[in-house]
Amino acid sequence: MPVHHQWRDRVENGTLLGPRWVIGGMLIDGSPSFWNGRGLPFHEVKTEDEARAAVRRSKEDGADFVKVYSQLSLPLYRAVVDEARRQRIPFAGHCPNMVALTRASNAGQRSFEHLLGTLFATSDREAELLRAMREVKVDPVDPLRQMGPLELRAADSYHPAKASEVFALFPGFGLHDELTMLVRAGLTPMRALQAATLEPARYLGLDDRIGTVKRENWRISWCWTPIRSTTSTAPGGSTPLSPVVGSSRPKNARRCSPTSERPRRTRRP
């Protein structure tokens, strides 16, 4: 929405105190869309030309990324992907119901909100279930009703080998609990912390400014003691991580200096 871009501009020029904004364009969905009649502005596309035009409109509107949505067919999704590459704008959002998650990931989609598509991608009946998804008709009263049974079938047919082909890191809402679970699942504490710091910075293309602890980033990246476990980041932990926004180093703070598994330097995408 225009007001979001106005707020972002004011934050960046220092006339409004606020967080850094990363703004998506109006979502691009196939037809019929879940959002028909719900009052939300969006692009409902029926042809590849319309899909490409929606991508160009997102860029013209000043969006940081194109948002793809659930009802895009595979041909429409391919058109969005191709046009986004031509326009040099990232694309992210939902994994379309009729597109395999691994296919979307390989195409360059930057994120998969709500982990949509994960249940199917980790099922040994993925192809069968995706075919069934293509037959689902959108119910305007309850658009998700027909998807539930298919997702349950996918969960019941979960296969560890399929899952190992899909998962890397999926940090989400319960940050402190998820960091602990990532370590229990086999990551080292440093790799888990990178999942909540360095990797999101890389995703946003901001890893030259945030996500690591270095002199020019002191304004946002300080902690009280070196991190030895992910429980250190939780309230009440023995060595609490405490990012500080300010112009100088806190008097009683020490710079974090992990001695192993230092973040790899990468070029900004």
Rank of each mutant, 00 (worst) to 15 (best):
residue 44 E to N: 10
residue 81 V to S: 10
residue 16 L to V: 12
residue 67 K to V: 15
residue 33 S to C: 09
residue 81 V to R: 06
residue 37 G to R: 08
residue 55 V to N: 00
residue 42 F to R: 01
residue 64 D to E: 10
residue 24 G to R: 03
residue 51 A to L: 11
residue 53 A to E: 13
residue 20 R to S: 07
residue 47 T to W: 05
residue 11 V to F: 09
residue 27 L to Y: 06
residue 30 G to K: 05
residue 17 L to R: 14
residue 58 S to P: 02
residue 87 Q to N: 01
residue 58 S to I: 04
residue 28 I to R: 04
residue 50 E to G: 06
residue 87 Q to H: 00
residue 68 V to M: 01
residue 67 K to D: 03
residue 79 A to S: 07
residue 84 A to E: 08
residue 81 V to K: 06
residue 51 A to R: 11
residue 38 R to P: 02
residue 25 G to I: 12
residue 86 R to C: 03
residue 59 K to Q: 15
residue 22 V to F: 15
residue 61 D to I: 02
residue 64 D to N: 12
residue 21 W to Q: 05
residue 36 N to Q: 14
residue 70 S to K: 03
residue 34 F to R: 06
residue 59 K to E: 14
residue 28 I to D: 03
residue 31 S to W: 09
residue 21 W to D: 02
residue 64 D to T: 07
residue 22 V to R: 13
residue 24 G to A: 15
residue 74 L to P: 09
residue 33 S to R: 07
residue 14 G to N: 10
residue 53 A to R: 07
residue 19 P to W: 14
residue 17 L to S: 14
residue 60 E to D: 13
residue 32 P to Y: 12
residue 25 G to L: 12
residue 66 V to A: 03
residue 79 A to L: 04
residue 30 G to I: 08
residue 44 E to Y: 05
residue 19 P to F: 15
residue 21 W to V: 01
residue 50 E to W: 00
residue 17 L to V: 14
residue 39 G to S: 11
residue 84 A to S: 15
residue 48 E to P: 01
residue 27 L to Q: 06
residue 64 D to P: 03
residue 33 S to G: 13
residue 12 E to P: 00
residue 17 L to I: 14
residue 88 R to D: 15
residue 86 R to F: 05
residue 12 E to C: 03
residue 76 L to T: 11
residue 31 S to E: 08
residue 73 S to V: 11
residue 42 F to D: 00
residue 63 A to T: 07
residue 58 S to F: 02
residue 63 A to H: 04
residue 60 E to K: 08
residue 18 G to F: 14
residue 40 L to K: 08
residue 67 K to G: 02
residue 37 G to V: 08
residue 15 T to Q: 03
residue 53 A to I: 02
residue 59 K to P: 09
residue 72 L to P: 05
residue 54 A to N: 07
residue 55 V to P: 04
residue 64 D to F: 12
residue 70 S to I: 15
residue 68 V to H: 04
residue 45 V to T: 06
residue 58 S to N: 13
residue 43 H to K: 06
residue 89 I to K: 01
residue 49 D to M: 01
residue 13 N to Q: 15
residue 30 G to W: 07
residue 70 S to A: 14
residue 18 G to V: 14
residue 40 L to P: 02
residue 78 R to I: 01
residue 18 G to L: 12
residue 16 L to I: 12
residue 57 R to W: 02
residue 44 E to D: 07
residue 72 L to I: 11
residue 86 R to K: 13
residue 88 R to P: 01
residue 71 Q to A: 10
